[in-house]
Amino acid sequence: MIARSDAPPPLALKILGIVALASFGAATGAAVATLGINRAMAWSDEVALVMAVGLLAMAIASAVVMATRPASAPKSSGLLQIATLLLASAMFLLPIYGQQFATADVVFGAVIVLLVVQTAANVMLWKRADEMLRRIMAETGAMAFIACQTALFIYAAAERLSLVGPVSSWGLIGITMGIYLCASCIAAARRGIH
């Protein structure tokens, strides 16, 4: 058997990744200006927008890594992972901007369709993953659940005591996604995946 290299990615690849992400940042800025997004937004929309852009950035980074990977490397579930990230991003963007292009009913229907497709893709990812990746997914779920439950309890108690105002479910889902992404980074880093 011929040994393949386990060397870290070359400098050119890292530079390509930086250029891709910088281009994405510029495109995001241009989109924000074009769509008039710089108007005053509710904080819940701002959180959702940050999540959507973050998910898009992760998808682009994954695509760059996949495209520049040696041809001999196993393809694994890279495309599927990119698809789930893009779908999740679209699901956060549609409720904010969808009504500029369609009625609320149509936008909601589109969100449900995307959710079904993304759920199917996530199930496929789970089935294709090896035991360590499944462990990372399970640990991410556990960490996110505990963090969200704790935060929700603290906020609910404060809200019951009229110390803070109510939070919309749209705001909560943005926060939940943020916590989930942080948990997934921690779980992956613990196994040496960066």
Partner: peptide, 30 residues
Amino acid sequence: RNWSQADLAEQLGVSRQTVNALETGRYDPS
């Protein structure tokens, strides 16, 4: 055996990341 992590991963039916995590002690196998 002059195998790369990818070679071993292929034989074990796991990802290269899993082999790396095993070697660095970040993951205990089933």
